[in-house]
């Protein structure tokens, strides 16, 4: 083997300033007030949350605003058991795809107030929000999801969201 290449470590970072556009702006203003504002496609009737202002499938603008529930169904999940850079949760914890009632896209979140081995596909959950005065224009306003106590959703009800 030839002589080792000399390496140096330099810190780098990238700062973004996001200009969200009309539909995401409404979503971010809503989430600051603890409301989840999506948009319905006029053609396929699917509800986008967060909204992008258009339907990816139908290629048409979405205009109709729809308030989505902060309760939903765990469609699938994983139990995270590995430490990594930037982690904010203590391991093990559950990262789940949750389809909120009234939305047609899953969003990702942490599930707590339940033992990790008891989390399951179809589990009904409820968002836990940070205090109103601490909320910003970010999905971090939802701290985590907790079981809502309702009966599990049947597989067929969320099959198309997998």
């Amino acid at each position: 083997m030839s002589e080792a290449v000399k390496k140096i470590v330099t810190p780098i970072s990238i700062e973004y300033t996001i200009t969200p556009g009309a539909a995401p702006t409404k979503f971010l203003r809503g989430i600051k007030e603890g409301r989840l504002l999506g948009q319905r496609c006029p053609k396929c009737s699917k509800v986008y949350l967060p909204p992008r202002g258009s339907c990816t499938v139908c290629a048409v603008p979405t205009v109709e605003e729809v308030e989505v529930s902060d309760q939903g169904t765990v469609t699938t999940f994983c139990v995270v058991n590995i430490p990594f850079y930037g982690q904010v949760q203590e391991i093990p914890y559950v990262c789940a795809a949750v389809v909120l009632d009234g939305a047609d896209l899953p969003c990702f979140g942490v599930v707590q107030e339940i033992a990790v081995e008891e989390v399951r596909m179809g589990l009904r959950v409820q968002a836990v929000w940070v205090a109103p005065e601490e909320r910003g224009y970010t999905l971090e306003n939802i701290k985590y999801f907790k079981p809502s106590g309702q009966a599990d959703a049947p597989f067929e009800s969320y099959r198309e969201h997998l």
Binding site: Y16, P20, P50, T76, C78, V80, F108, L139
Partner: peptide, 24 residues
């Protein structure tokens, strides 16, 4: 993993994207 306001903060690391799909 950029941190943007439309997504919750980094919740799972690299395999966390694939593991739920595998479970499905």
């Amino acid at each position: 993993t950029p941190n943007i306001p439309f997504q919750p903060p980094l919740v799972a690391g690299a395999g966390g994207y694939f593991a739920p799909i595998i479970r499905s």
